[in-house]
Amino acid sequence: MMFLEKGDLHFVLDVLAGLGKLYVPAESNGITRFVPYGGEKTQVWLQTNTAISPKEILFPATETLYRYETGRGKETVKPVADHHAPLILFGIRSCDLQAITCLDDVFLDGEFVDELYRERRETATIIALSCAKAGPHCFCQSMGLDPLAHRQSDLQMYDYDQYYGLEANSDRGRLLLETLEKHDLLSVSGRENPVPALEFALEVETEGITEKLTGMFEHPLWEEVASKCLNCGICTYLCPACHCFDISEKLDNAHCGSKIRCWDSCMFSGYTRMAGGHNPRPGKRERVRERFMHKLCYFPQRYGKYLCTGCGRCLAKCPVGLEITKIMELVKEVENDA
């Protein structure tokens, strides 16, 4: 393991910023999220995970797919320019990295590869950071994660008092370490302080939940828990793992415009509304059920992991306290005679 003195962090960030487009967790415009590093004026924020997840870097809330022009008998389609400088994501927590692996499953794995996602993801170097304390809404450990490290990072940083311990998990990570060494920023002496186990205010039992949910599609529980839901987009938009989108148009005038893709949410009525007006998920019961079924049943069945990583963002911000941890408890408790 290599060590870095905490006081030298901004030198490291300056070096990293020279290697690609560097994103760091920061307080910006009154909220914490990952922003492009802009030197000293960036208010780097390393206390817990950010309010807005880093998914917006790899999968932006709105992005243009292509531009088109029609008229005078000819149609042209212009792809958006390949604008991707290599990305470096600094300070990603285990929960958010796990969520990125979920996005990878959806966008990269299998028959259909999402080119826009792939272009970004393939260039990205991920520098993970261990958590020094669990946030009030965190429950990643219950979801089977280690808040101190995630193996799919390129470089793992451990938070030890005055030092960060650095360990590479990939060639990209090793290359970064070499570069930092060249800049004389690392040392081999440092202390690998034993990190006390994190104390979680929230714990939840997940064992057997996927199997149990398989038989609960028609369970009265959904009606019961869904009534208070506002069908807003908070939980899904803040979730680092939710990845639904909608493709629509942005017209400049009658002849030209662009195709855009925007985040969408299974909580919205328009999400499943069909062209003729029929909506197979007409109400709160169906929408709330879908959200939890997708996260805890369908996704694990398909990809072998939960689509919830325990980051706690939906718990923190749901205006009516519809908590996924509570849902998991209830699913465990209720009788399933379906």
Binding site: L230, N231, C232, G233, I234, Y237, S265, F268, G270, P319
Partner: peptide, 27 residues
């Protein structure tokens, strides 16, 4: 408003927002 997520929680919670179909939802 540059940080607005367009989650529409503000609309959905509001007792004065009672349009049957919100213009923001009409495709």
């Amino acid at each position: 408003f540059s940080k607005c997520l367009r989650c529409y929680a503000c609309r959905n919670v509001c007792p004065a927002c009672s349009c049957r179909e919100c213009i923001m939802d009409s495709e």
